[in-house]
Write a protein that binds this DNA or RNA. Sequence first.
DNA 1: ACTTGTCTGTTGCAATTGCAACACTTTTAT
DNA 2: ATAAAAGTGTTGCAATTGCAACAGACAAGT
Lengths: 211, 211
Amino acid sequence: MLVMSMKEKRELIHHLRTLLPKHVRIQIKHYQKGDNVTTYLAKRNQICIVLTGVVDLVRYDRNGNKTIVERYRENDLFGEAFHPVVTNNELFVVAKEKSEILQLVYDDLHLKEDKSDMILCHHLFQLATLKAIDQNIRIELLTKTTIREKLLFYFSYLAINNYGKEFTIPFSFTDLSDYFNVDRSALMRELKHLTDEGFIERKGKNITLLY
Amino acid sequence: MLVMSMKEKRELIHHLRTLLPKHVRIQIKHYQKGDNVTTYLAKRNQICIVLTGVVDLVRYDRNGNKTIVERYRENDLFGEAFHPVVTNNELFVVAKEKSEILQLVYDDLHLKEDKSDMILCHHLFQLATLKAIDQNIRIELLTKTTIREKLLFYFSYLAINNYGKEFTIPFSFTDLSDYFNVDRSALMRELKHLTDEGFIERKGKNITLLY
DNA sequence: ACTTGTCTGTTGCAATTGCAACACTTTTAT
DNA sequence: ATAAAAGTGTTGCAATTGCAACAGACAAGT
Protein backbone atom coordinates (compact mmCIF):
# COMPACT_ATOMS: atom_id res chain seq x y z
CA MET A 1 0.00 0.00 0.00
CA LEU A 2 1.17 3.47 -0.80
CA VAL A 3 -0.93 5.19 1.84
CA MET A 4 0.10 3.89 5.20
CA SER A 5 -0.47 4.41 8.89
CA MET A 6 2.09 5.75 11.34
CA LYS A 7 2.66 2.19 12.55
CA GLU A 8 3.31 0.88 9.06
CA LYS A 9 5.66 3.78 8.43
CA ARG A 10 7.58 3.01 11.60
CA GLU A 11 7.92 -0.63 10.59
CA LEU A 12 9.10 0.42 7.16
CA ILE A 13 11.88 2.52 8.65
CA HIS A 14 12.86 -0.28 10.98
CA HIS A 15 13.00 -2.68 8.08
CA LEU A 16 15.02 -0.21 6.10
CA ARG A 17 17.56 0.14 8.89
CA THR A 18 18.04 -3.56 9.40
CA LEU A 19 18.44 -4.21 5.69
CA LEU A 20 20.68 -1.33 4.71
CA PRO A 21 23.14 -2.66 2.09
CA LYS A 22 26.72 -2.62 3.27
CA HIS A 23 27.93 -0.47 0.40
CA VAL A 24 25.58 2.35 1.40
CA ARG A 25 27.42 4.63 3.77
CA ILE A 26 25.18 5.90 6.51
CA GLN A 27 25.61 8.13 9.49
CA ILE A 28 23.35 8.59 12.46
CA LYS A 29 23.81 12.00 14.03
CA HIS A 30 22.43 13.53 17.18
CA TYR A 31 21.33 17.13 17.46
CA GLN A 32 20.23 19.31 20.34
CA LYS A 33 17.39 21.80 20.21
CA GLY A 34 18.37 24.79 18.10
CA ASP A 35 21.26 23.00 16.37
CA ASN A 36 21.76 23.62 12.70
CA VAL A 37 21.25 20.16 11.22
CA THR A 38 22.77 20.91 7.88
CA THR A 39 22.82 23.90 5.61
CA TYR A 40 21.44 23.75 2.13
CA LEU A 41 24.65 24.56 0.33
CA ALA A 42 27.02 22.17 -1.29
CA LYS A 43 26.45 18.61 -0.10
CA ARG A 44 24.10 17.41 -2.80
CA ASN A 45 22.53 13.99 -2.99
CA GLN A 46 22.29 13.55 0.70
CA ILE A 47 19.09 12.01 1.97
CA CYS A 48 18.09 12.33 5.60
CA ILE A 49 15.50 10.47 7.64
CA VAL A 50 14.31 11.68 11.03
CA LEU A 51 14.61 8.79 13.49
CA THR A 52 13.50 10.73 16.54
CA GLY A 53 12.60 14.33 17.22
CA VAL A 54 11.41 17.23 15.09
CA VAL A 55 13.34 19.42 12.68
CA ASP A 56 12.16 22.47 10.73
CA LEU A 57 13.20 23.63 7.30
CA VAL A 58 13.02 27.39 7.64
CA ARG A 59 13.60 30.36 5.41
CA TYR A 60 14.18 34.00 6.25
CA ASP A 61 13.41 36.55 3.57
CA ARG A 62 15.01 39.95 3.11
CA ASN A 63 12.57 41.55 5.56
CA GLY A 64 13.40 38.98 8.21
CA ASN A 65 10.09 37.16 7.89
CA LYS A 66 10.44 33.57 9.00
CA THR A 67 8.62 30.82 7.18
CA ILE A 68 8.54 27.19 8.21
CA VAL A 69 8.88 25.69 4.77
CA GLU A 70 8.38 22.20 6.11
CA ARG A 71 8.37 20.46 9.46
CA TYR A 72 9.81 16.96 9.60
CA ARG A 73 8.78 14.52 12.28
CA GLU A 74 9.69 10.93 13.08
CA ASN A 75 10.30 8.86 9.95
CA ASP A 76 10.06 11.80 7.56
CA LEU A 77 12.41 12.11 4.62
CA PHE A 78 14.28 15.28 3.69
CA GLY A 79 17.51 16.44 2.18
CA GLU A 80 19.32 18.85 -0.06
CA ALA A 81 18.38 16.69 -3.02
CA PHE A 82 14.81 17.96 -2.75
CA HIS A 83 15.82 21.61 -2.83
CA PRO A 84 17.74 22.42 -5.98
CA VAL A 85 19.35 25.83 -6.04
CA VAL A 86 16.83 27.63 -8.21
CA THR A 87 17.20 31.02 -6.61
CA ASN A 88 19.25 32.83 -4.05
CA ASN A 89 17.54 31.24 -1.09
CA GLU A 90 18.65 30.96 2.46
CA LEU A 91 17.32 27.67 3.76
CA PHE A 92 18.19 26.26 7.15
CA VAL A 93 17.36 23.00 8.83
CA VAL A 94 17.07 23.52 12.56
CA ALA A 95 16.37 20.95 15.25
CA LYS A 96 13.15 21.95 16.99
CA GLU A 97 13.95 19.50 19.76
CA LYS A 98 16.58 16.82 20.56
CA SER A 99 16.72 14.78 17.37
CA GLU A 100 18.40 11.80 15.77
CA ILE A 101 18.92 11.88 12.03
CA LEU A 102 19.95 9.10 9.67
CA GLN A 103 21.92 10.39 6.70
CA LEU A 104 22.82 8.45 3.59
CA VAL A 105 24.36 9.32 0.28
CA TYR A 106 22.03 8.72 -2.61
CA ASP A 107 24.77 7.90 -5.10
CA ASP A 108 25.73 4.84 -3.06
CA LEU A 109 22.57 2.97 -3.86
CA HIS A 110 23.19 2.78 -7.56
CA LEU A 111 21.91 -0.49 -8.92
CA LYS A 112 24.11 -3.04 -7.21
CA GLU A 113 21.49 -5.64 -8.07
CA ASP A 114 21.23 -7.24 -4.72
CA LYS A 115 18.04 -7.83 -2.84
CA SER A 116 18.62 -5.41 0.02
CA ASP A 117 19.39 -2.67 -2.49
CA MET A 118 16.03 -3.28 -4.04
CA ILE A 119 14.23 -3.15 -0.73
CA LEU A 120 15.98 0.06 0.21
CA CYS A 121 14.99 1.60 -3.10
CA HIS A 122 11.42 0.48 -2.68
CA HIS A 123 11.23 1.91 0.79
CA LEU A 124 12.71 5.18 -0.33
CA PHE A 125 10.07 5.41 -3.02
CA GLN A 126 7.37 4.88 -0.44
CA LEU A 127 8.88 7.55 1.78
CA ALA A 128 9.11 9.94 -1.15
CA THR A 129 5.45 9.30 -1.85
CA LEU A 130 4.50 10.05 1.73
CA LYS A 131 6.55 13.21 1.49
CA ALA A 132 4.70 14.21 -1.66
CA ILE A 133 1.40 13.66 0.13
CA ASP A 134 2.45 15.99 2.94
CA GLN A 135 3.58 18.56 0.41
CA ASN A 136 0.25 18.37 -1.36
CA ILE A 137 -1.59 19.00 1.87
CA ARG A 138 0.61 22.00 2.51
CA ILE A 139 -0.02 23.30 -1.01
CA GLU A 140 -3.73 22.87 -0.55
CA LEU A 141 -3.53 24.75 2.72
CA LEU A 142 -1.53 27.60 1.23
CA THR A 143 -3.93 27.95 -1.70
CA LYS A 144 -6.85 28.69 0.59
CA THR A 145 -7.52 32.37 0.04
CA THR A 146 -8.43 33.52 3.55
CA ILE A 147 -7.06 32.77 7.00
CA ARG A 148 -10.49 31.47 7.94
CA GLU A 149 -10.42 28.92 5.14
CA LYS A 150 -6.88 27.91 6.06
CA LEU A 151 -7.93 27.32 9.64
CA LEU A 152 -11.04 25.35 8.73
CA PHE A 153 -9.10 23.21 6.27
CA TYR A 154 -6.39 22.55 8.82
CA PHE A 155 -8.93 21.77 11.52
CA SER A 156 -10.79 19.28 9.38
CA TYR A 157 -7.44 17.67 8.56
CA LEU A 158 -6.65 17.35 12.26
CA ALA A 159 -10.17 16.12 12.99
CA ILE A 160 -9.83 13.33 10.43
CA ASN A 161 -6.42 12.33 11.76
CA ASN A 162 -7.71 12.25 15.33
CA TYR A 163 -11.01 10.64 14.43
CA GLY A 164 -13.04 13.26 16.18
CA LYS A 165 -14.11 16.85 16.56
CA GLU A 166 -11.81 17.47 19.51
CA PHE A 167 -8.08 17.78 19.11
CA THR A 168 -5.02 19.70 20.18
CA ILE A 169 -3.09 21.83 17.72
CA PRO A 170 0.43 20.33 17.48
CA PHE A 171 2.04 23.73 16.80
CA SER A 172 2.48 26.80 18.92
CA PHE A 173 0.39 29.61 17.43
CA THR A 174 3.60 31.41 16.57
CA ASP A 175 4.76 28.38 14.56
CA LEU A 176 1.30 27.85 13.11
CA SER A 177 1.32 31.34 11.67
CA ASP A 178 4.74 30.64 10.16
CA TYR A 179 3.40 27.41 8.69
CA PHE A 180 0.29 29.15 7.32
CA ASN A 181 2.50 31.98 6.17
CA VAL A 182 0.23 34.61 7.70
CA ASP A 183 0.65 37.22 10.37
CA ARG A 184 0.34 35.83 13.85
CA SER A 185 -1.94 38.56 15.15
CA ALA A 186 -4.21 38.17 12.13
CA LEU A 187 -4.41 34.46 12.86
CA MET A 188 -5.33 35.08 16.50
CA ARG A 189 -7.97 37.58 15.39
CA GLU A 190 -9.52 35.05 13.03
CA LEU A 191 -9.53 32.41 15.77
CA LYS A 192 -11.46 34.86 17.91
CA HIS A 193 -13.98 35.48 15.14
CA LEU A 194 -14.50 31.74 14.67
CA THR A 195 -15.09 31.39 18.41
CA ASP A 196 -17.45 34.38 18.58
CA GLU A 197 -19.45 33.14 15.62
CA GLY A 198 -19.86 29.72 17.21
CA PHE A 199 -17.83 27.66 14.76
CA ILE A 200 -15.39 26.39 17.36
CA GLU A 201 -14.71 26.26 21.06
CA ARG A 202 -11.18 26.84 22.19
CA LYS A 203 -9.17 26.45 25.39
CA GLY A 204 -5.59 27.29 24.56
CA LYS A 205 -4.60 24.86 21.85
CA ASN A 206 -7.51 22.49 22.44
CA ILE A 207 -10.15 22.91 19.77
CA THR A 208 -13.66 21.53 19.54
CA LEU A 209 -15.46 21.82 16.23
CA LEU A 210 -19.11 22.80 16.62
CA TYR A 211 -20.19 22.30 13.03
CA MET B 1 22.26 11.76 -9.95
CA LEU B 2 19.09 12.87 -8.31
CA VAL B 3 18.91 16.25 -9.98
CA MET B 4 18.70 15.74 -13.70
CA SER B 5 18.20 17.60 -16.93
CA MET B 6 15.18 17.32 -19.18
CA LYS B 7 17.17 15.08 -21.47
CA GLU B 8 18.16 12.74 -18.67
CA LYS B 9 14.59 12.64 -17.49
CA ARG B 10 13.40 11.73 -20.99
CA GLU B 11 15.95 8.92 -21.18
CA LEU B 12 14.87 7.69 -17.78
CA ILE B 13 11.25 7.43 -18.92
CA HIS B 14 12.31 5.69 -22.10
CA HIS B 15 14.34 3.22 -20.12
CA LEU B 16 11.46 2.68 -17.76
CA ARG B 17 9.10 1.93 -20.65
CA THR B 18 11.38 -0.58 -22.31
CA LEU B 19 12.10 -2.39 -19.07
CA LEU B 20 8.63 -2.52 -17.57
CA PRO B 21 8.30 -5.90 -15.87
CA LYS B 22 5.66 -8.12 -17.44
CA HIS B 23 3.69 -8.54 -14.25
CA VAL B 24 3.11 -4.80 -14.02
CA ARG B 25 -0.11 -3.98 -15.82
CA ILE B 26 0.13 -0.75 -17.70
CA GLN B 27 -2.19 1.23 -19.92
CA ILE B 28 -1.40 4.06 -22.26
CA LYS B 29 -4.39 6.32 -22.75
CA HIS B 30 -5.01 9.22 -25.09
CA TYR B 31 -6.89 12.33 -24.11
CA GLN B 32 -8.12 15.36 -26.03
CA LYS B 33 -8.00 18.94 -24.79
CA GLY B 34 -10.54 19.41 -22.03
CA ASP B 35 -10.95 15.70 -21.31
CA ASN B 36 -11.25 14.60 -17.73
CA VAL B 37 -8.19 12.39 -17.31
CA THR B 38 -9.32 10.70 -14.14
CA THR B 39 -11.20 11.86 -11.09
CA TYR B 40 -9.70 11.67 -7.66
CA LEU B 41 -12.24 9.35 -6.18
CA ALA B 42 -11.93 5.62 -5.73
CA LYS B 43 -9.10 4.22 -7.82
CA ARG B 44 -6.27 4.34 -5.34
CA ASN B 45 -2.72 3.29 -5.92
CA GLN B 46 -2.70 4.31 -9.53
CA ILE B 47 0.40 6.05 -10.75
CA CYS B 48 0.35 8.11 -13.93
CA ILE B 49 3.17 9.44 -16.06
CA VAL B 50 2.66 12.09 -18.73
CA LEU B 51 4.24 10.83 -21.96
CA THR B 52 3.17 13.78 -24.11
CA GLY B 53 1.05 16.85 -23.52
CA VAL B 54 0.04 18.86 -20.47
CA VAL B 55 -2.52 18.09 -17.80
CA ASP B 56 -3.70 20.21 -14.89
CA LEU B 57 -4.76 19.12 -11.45
CA VAL B 58 -7.44 21.68 -10.59
CA ARG B 59 -9.68 22.41 -7.67
CA TYR B 60 -12.83 24.48 -7.43
CA ASP B 61 -13.78 25.76 -4.02
CA ARG B 62 -17.26 26.56 -2.75
CA ASN B 63 -17.12 30.06 -4.24
CA GLY B 64 -16.20 28.70 -7.64
CA ASN B 65 -12.60 29.89 -7.45
CA LYS B 66 -10.39 27.77 -9.64
CA THR B 67 -6.90 26.83 -8.51
CA ILE B 68 -4.33 24.97 -10.57
CA VAL B 69 -3.02 22.74 -7.82
CA GLU B 70 -0.31 21.38 -10.08
CA ARG B 71 0.49 21.34 -13.77
CA TYR B 72 2.05 18.17 -15.16
CA ARG B 73 4.15 18.21 -18.30
CA GLU B 74 6.05 15.58 -20.24
CA ASN B 75 7.56 12.89 -17.98
CA ASP B 76 5.89 14.17 -14.82
CA LEU B 77 4.49 11.78 -12.28
CA PHE B 78 1.05 12.09 -10.72
CA GLY B 79 -1.78 9.99 -9.37
CA GLU B 80 -4.45 9.47 -6.76
CA ALA B 81 -1.85 7.93 -4.52
CA PHE B 82 -0.39 11.39 -3.90
CA HIS B 83 -3.71 12.88 -2.84
CA PRO B 84 -5.18 11.03 0.10
CA VAL B 85 -8.72 11.96 0.98
CA VAL B 86 -8.02 14.25 3.89
CA THR B 87 -10.96 16.56 3.37
CA ASN B 88 -13.99 16.94 1.22
CA ASN B 89 -12.08 18.09 -1.80
CA GLU B 90 -13.09 18.24 -5.39
CA LEU B 91 -9.99 17.56 -7.43
CA PHE B 92 -10.02 17.08 -11.18
CA VAL B 93 -7.32 16.21 -13.65
CA VAL B 94 -8.02 17.88 -16.98
CA ALA B 95 -6.03 17.62 -20.19
CA LYS B 96 -4.83 21.09 -21.08
CA GLU B 97 -3.95 19.85 -24.56
CA LYS B 98 -3.89 16.53 -26.47
CA SER B 99 -2.07 14.19 -24.11
CA GLU B 100 -0.83 10.65 -23.73
CA ILE B 101 -0.74 9.17 -20.24
CA LEU B 102 0.90 6.00 -18.99
CA GLN B 103 -0.97 4.45 -16.09
CA LEU B 104 0.26 1.66 -13.87
CA VAL B 105 -1.00 0.06 -10.69
CA TYR B 106 1.39 0.49 -7.83
CA ASP B 107 0.46 -2.76 -6.09
CA ASP B 108 1.77 -4.72 -9.08
CA LEU B 109 5.37 -3.84 -8.44
CA HIS B 110 5.63 -5.54 -5.10
CA LEU B 111 9.03 -7.02 -4.63
CA LYS B 112 9.17 -9.64 -7.34
CA GLU B 113 12.95 -9.66 -6.94
CA ASP B 114 13.86 -9.44 -10.56
CA LYS B 115 16.17 -6.91 -12.08
CA SER B 116 13.63 -4.98 -14.11
CA ASP B 117 11.49 -4.59 -11.01
CA MET B 118 14.41 -3.02 -9.29
CA ILE B 119 15.08 -0.64 -12.12
CA LEU B 120 11.44 0.39 -12.25
CA CYS B 121 11.45 1.03 -8.54
CA HIS B 122 14.62 3.04 -8.79
CA HIS B 123 13.21 5.12 -11.60
CA LEU B 124 9.99 5.74 -9.75
CA PHE B 125 11.98 6.97 -6.79
CA GLN B 126 13.83 9.38 -9.02
CA LEU B 127 10.58 10.62 -10.50
CA ALA B 128 9.08 11.02 -7.05
CA THR B 129 12.12 13.08 -6.09
CA LEU B 130 11.71 15.32 -9.11
CA LYS B 131 8.07 15.72 -8.20
CA ALA B 132 9.03 16.72 -4.67
CA ILE B 133 11.40 19.32 -6.11
CA ASP B 134 8.61 20.85 -8.17
CA GLN B 135 6.33 20.86 -5.18
CA ASN B 136 8.96 22.61 -3.11
CA ILE B 137 9.29 25.32 -5.72
CA ARG B 138 5.54 25.76 -5.70
CA ILE B 139 5.50 25.95 -1.91
CA GLU B 140 8.26 28.53 -1.97
CA LEU B 141 6.31 30.55 -4.51
CA LEU B 142 3.11 30.39 -2.49
CA THR B 143 4.87 31.44 0.70
CA LYS B 144 5.98 34.72 -0.82
CA THR B 145 3.85 37.31 0.91
CA THR B 146 3.13 39.74 -1.90
CA ILE B 147 2.27 39.35 -5.56
CA ARG B 148 5.40 41.33 -6.38
CA GLU B 149 7.59 38.83 -4.53
CA LYS B 150 5.81 35.95 -6.21
CA LEU B 151 6.46 37.45 -9.62
CA LEU B 152 10.11 38.21 -8.92
CA PHE B 153 10.71 34.72 -7.54
CA TYR B 154 8.99 33.13 -10.51
CA PHE B 155 10.90 35.33 -12.95
CA SER B 156 14.25 34.47 -11.42
CA TYR B 157 13.28 30.80 -11.63
CA LEU B 158 12.47 31.19 -15.32
CA ALA B 159 15.64 33.20 -15.88
CA ILE B 160 17.80 30.45 -14.38
CA ASN B 161 16.04 27.76 -16.41
CA ASN B 162 16.45 29.77 -19.61
CA TYR B 163 19.98 30.88 -18.77
CA GLY B 164 19.23 34.52 -19.34
CA LYS B 165 17.29 37.62 -18.46
CA GLU B 166 14.89 37.24 -21.37
CA PHE B 167 12.20 34.60 -21.42
CA THR B 168 8.58 33.90 -22.28
CA ILE B 169 6.07 33.05 -19.59
CA PRO B 170 4.83 29.51 -20.30
CA PHE B 171 1.37 30.22 -18.84
CA SER B 172 -1.46 32.45 -19.96
CA PHE B 173 -1.90 35.24 -17.41
CA THR B 174 -5.23 33.74 -16.51
CA ASP B 175 -3.55 30.41 -15.70
CA LEU B 176 -0.63 32.15 -14.02
CA SER B 177 -2.97 33.84 -11.59
CA ASP B 178 -4.57 30.45 -10.86
CA TYR B 179 -1.11 29.00 -10.28
CA PHE B 180 -0.08 31.88 -8.02
CA ASN B 181 -3.46 31.67 -6.37
CA VAL B 182 -4.05 35.40 -6.67
CA ASP B 183 -6.61 37.53 -8.44
CA ARG B 184 -5.87 37.99 -12.11
CA SER B 185 -6.48 41.73 -12.17
CA ALA B 186 -4.27 42.18 -9.13
CA LEU B 187 -1.53 40.28 -10.93
CA MET B 188 -1.88 42.47 -14.03
CA ARG B 189 -1.75 45.55 -11.86
CA GLU B 190 1.45 44.40 -10.19
CA LEU B 191 3.01 43.62 -13.59
CA LYS B 192 2.23 47.20 -14.56
CA HIS B 193 3.86 48.55 -11.42
CA LEU B 194 6.99 46.48 -12.05
CA THR B 195 7.13 47.86 -15.59
CA ASP B 196 6.53 51.46 -14.50
CA GLU B 197 9.20 51.23 -11.82
CA GLY B 198 11.73 49.90 -14.30
CA PHE B 199 12.20 46.40 -12.92
CA ILE B 200 11.11 44.67 -16.09
CA GLU B 201 10.24 45.23 -19.71
CA ARG B 202 7.27 43.39 -21.09
CA LYS B 203 5.79 42.68 -24.49
CA GLY B 204 2.86 40.35 -23.98
CA LYS B 205 4.33 37.31 -22.32
CA ASN B 206 7.95 38.15 -23.19
CA ILE B 207 9.78 39.47 -20.18
CA THR B 208 13.19 41.10 -19.88
CA LEU B 209 14.64 41.55 -16.43
CA LEU B 210 16.34 44.92 -15.98
CA TYR B 211 17.94 44.25 -12.60
C1' DA C 1 -16.21 35.79 -42.85
C1' DC C 2 -18.45 35.84 -38.77
C1' DT C 3 -19.74 34.50 -34.40
C1' DT C 4 -18.54 32.76 -30.04
C1' DG C 5 -15.69 32.33 -26.46
C1' DT C 6 -11.44 33.09 -24.08
C1' DC C 7 -7.70 36.16 -22.85
C1' DT C 8 -5.79 40.78 -21.85
C1' DG C 9 -5.84 45.13 -19.76
C1' DT C 10 -7.76 48.69 -16.60
C1' DT C 11 -10.11 50.93 -12.64
C1' DG C 12 -12.87 52.07 -8.23
C1' DC C 13 -14.09 50.24 -4.08
C1' DA C 14 -14.47 47.08 -0.21
C1' DA C 15 -12.46 43.53 2.55
C1' DT C 16 -8.79 41.05 4.48
C1' DT C 17 -4.50 41.04 6.07
C1' DG C 18 0.03 42.77 7.71
C1' DC C 19 2.42 45.78 10.80
C1' DA C 20 3.51 47.95 15.09
C1' DA C 21 2.92 48.24 19.65
C1' DC C 22 1.70 46.78 24.07
C1' DA C 23 0.50 43.91 28.38
C1' DC C 24 0.44 39.63 30.26
C1' DT C 25 1.52 34.54 30.84
C1' DT C 26 4.33 30.57 30.40
C1' DT C 27 8.55 28.25 29.64
C1' DT C 28 13.46 27.77 29.77
C1' DA C 29 18.04 28.49 31.43
C1' DT C 30 21.45 29.79 34.95
C1' DA D 1 14.77 31.24 42.62
C1' DT D 2 14.99 34.43 39.46
C1' DA D 3 16.04 36.47 35.21
C1' DA D 4 15.53 36.08 30.36
C1' DA D 5 13.21 34.44 26.53
C1' DA D 6 9.40 32.85 24.11
C1' DG D 7 4.55 32.57 23.48
C1' DT D 8 -0.31 34.47 23.90
C1' DG D 9 -3.82 37.80 23.31
C1' DT D 10 -5.50 42.38 21.68
C1' DT D 11 -6.11 46.67 18.99
C1' DG D 12 -5.77 50.72 15.54
C1' DC D 13 -4.22 51.78 11.23
C1' DA D 14 -2.22 51.31 6.66
C1' DA D 15 -1.35 48.52 2.68
C1' DT D 16 -2.29 44.92 -0.41
C1' DT D 17 -5.39 42.29 -2.47
C1' DG D 18 -9.89 40.56 -4.15
C1' DC D 19 -14.10 41.61 -6.46
C1' DA D 20 -16.98 43.49 -9.97
C1' DA D 21 -17.40 45.40 -14.09
C1' DC D 22 -16.17 46.74 -18.51
C1' DA D 23 -13.82 47.23 -23.28
C1' DG D 24 -10.92 45.60 -26.66
C1' DA D 25 -7.77 41.89 -28.67
C1' DC D 26 -7.20 37.44 -30.04
C1' DA D 27 -8.37 32.60 -31.08
C1' DA D 28 -11.19 28.80 -32.47
C1' DG D 29 -14.88 26.74 -34.87
C1' DT D 30 -18.73 26.70 -38.29
